[in-house]
Design a protein around this nucleic acid. Structure first.
Lengths: 334, 334
DNA sequence: CTGAAAGCGCTTACAG
DNA sequence: CTGAAAGCGCTTACAG
């Protein structure tokens, strides 16, 4: 182990060959006589040579780096996605560079510009509020994979899941259990997925011929607190309900606490359904019935798609779908 | 908006100055006549010029990039840390590059080598099982901040929190509530913090004159499942206990589910204490009594320390401490 | 199969 | 205050 940094040129000198040859051996870019190859390998080991990726990037025009724009790295949902991205990139030579948009369009644009200035070879945008145009703009230079929206444009690959249908299914499940007074805690206003989920909720009620009671629809913003608050509001308004469909698991967790604090049991008194299937949701007491989002798989598919595009292949469409997972937080109304 | 990439040389030509001058203006590296500055700024806007950071890195020898080695980006604890790192780096010009060690020493070494080859200007190691020597080795080239251990060496800055004392305090709290039969669910074997927490648990019992019953100490490995399993084991072995101290919140969550499934109430029948204070812990039903780790603050302090070292300043020691947070999962034994 | 040379897009002494 | 020139550590046509 030595801390000294050595360069390709030093390796070449040590091995008695030209820098070009060392480069070729490193990159497997051309056949090289065995005797030279061995000499070079010996020199590499002796000098403990590690190629400087920054120099490689500048010379080759490929940074072997992928920009990943997420909104909040600490959120359990994005955490799963990022694990998937990491997995999908493992062994490909590409390193992910993560950036957080914090649900702010300006911040997102700023982060993307930074990623671009770092010469990322491709971009993965996990949802995000930026305009389609901004994405298309980036796609003029590098391939872009975006989740959470449908976008048909050159060099952009979008994955979209049908939140509305899944929300409809989740709500229909509650209805099938005999619930008619179903409250909905909405996601953050303005987020497309939050609108979709609400629409799915309404679809299911309409399909069952249940009138939509606007007092049962309360605003949340995807955080745990907002779930607690929503339940307080529902309860203090004395709107009767026997079930809650929360637009994500974090709010379902908050709602569950709000109910608990008032001695309202789940599922005995109120059935509860979430959306996401976060890692902790199956460990809630009771385990939460929810719509599973394949977060890990989404991240992995995004990474794989980008890598195959970058290697000149045609990526295959991943099979990603939302799935209702029934657990113990829901029960038949008696 | 245009996708074309322009270079500093093009800007220079457009503005009728030399590349050196453009560079100086960009970096505020020397005074420049106002007329030229304006011409350059106009050219930059016209060409929508963004400096190529890769080229800057190669030329200047500073990549403006910080390597952050964590174990598992998707874990709620590391997620918080990383948010803190991001916050601490915001506005400094440094970009974090995250890498996961997955609790594997070889993988860690590999990741660090990769970060080094990408010419990171500094390294943040969030816990991790690598040897002190490996860290010291890195510190020969770039400053290193490491958490979760004490390490006195040149160019390394270590943050260490007293897990043992905090675990002792948590256990003592249960004792003060009248509990004598306190089970402990250990963290992953071999992890220093897991040993420390167990030692603290034993310290508290010893200090209270309570004999240590090895049957009450069950192995976990920091995951939720391992908490469920630990409770099953305790229960099937019919070891009587009135409280559980889990070495982290994830296992406490699992334990809580295990108890719930058997109709054992928290805190009425069993008091439960965790360690970490994850974002979700205060939303458990009941909210969890736990030891708060300042994860965000740790990440932020690590970043700030590194930045101040990199700018030639002497970093000030952050005031980081563990704190017992009492909530509703514990109650006096009757 | 291999080397000399140019070039990637910047920064930074060196001179003036 | 400003420019010409060298250099950062690689890759990659171009020639042979």
């Amino acid at each position: 182990m030595q801390a000294k940094i050595s360069t390709l040129e030093q390796v070449a000198r040590e091995a008695g060959v030209s820098p070009s040859t060392v480069s070729r051996i490193l990159n497997g870019t051309a056949a090289v006589k065995d005797s030279k190859r061995e000499a070079v390998e010996r020199a590499i080991n002796k000098l403990n040579y590690q190629p400087n990726r920054v120099a490689q990037a500048l010379a080759s025009g490929r940074s072997m780096t992928i920009g990943v724009l997420t909104q909040n790295i600490a959120s359990p949902f994005y955490g799963e996605c990022l694990e998937g991205v990491e997995k999908g990139l493992a062994g490909t030579g590409y390193t992910p560079i993560f950036a957080n948009g914090h649900w702010d369009a300006k911040e997102e644009a700023h982060r993307i510009a930074l990623l671009a200035s770092r010469q990322v070879d491709g971009l993965i945008v996990l949802t995000g509020g930026m305009l389609d145009e901004a994405l298309v703009h980036q796609a003029a230079r590098i391939p872009v994979v975006v989740t959470g929206r449908q976008l048909d444009a050159a060099n952009v690959y979008s994955f979209w899941l049908d939140d509305r249908a899944a929300a409809r299914e989740a709500t229909a499940y509650l209805i099938s259990l005999g619930h008619h007074q179903i409250a909905h805690i909405c996601g953050a206003p303005g987020h497309p997925d939050s609108e979709e989920r609400q629409a799915g909720y309404k679809d299911a009620l309409a399909a069952a011929g249940i009138a939509i009671d606007p007092r049962l629809i309360v605003q949340g913003e995807y955080s745990e607190v907002s779930g607690v608050v929503a339940v307080s509001q529902l309860l203090s308004d004395r709107i009767p309900f026997t079930a809650i469909f929360a637009a994500n698991d974090q709010m379902a967790l908050g709602a569950r606490l709000g109910l608990y604090q008032r001695g309202i049991r789940v599922p005995e008194d109120v059935s509860l359904v979430g959306f996401d299937d976060l890692p902790y949701s199956s460990y809630m007491a009771p385990p939460l019935t929810t719509v599973r989002q394949p977060a890990f798989e989404i991240g992995m598919a995004a990474a794989q798609t980008l890598v195959s595009v970058l290697s000149g292949q045609t990526p295959q469409r991943p099979d990603l779908r939302l799935e209702l997972i029934t657990r113990d937080s829901t029960r038949r109304l008696r």
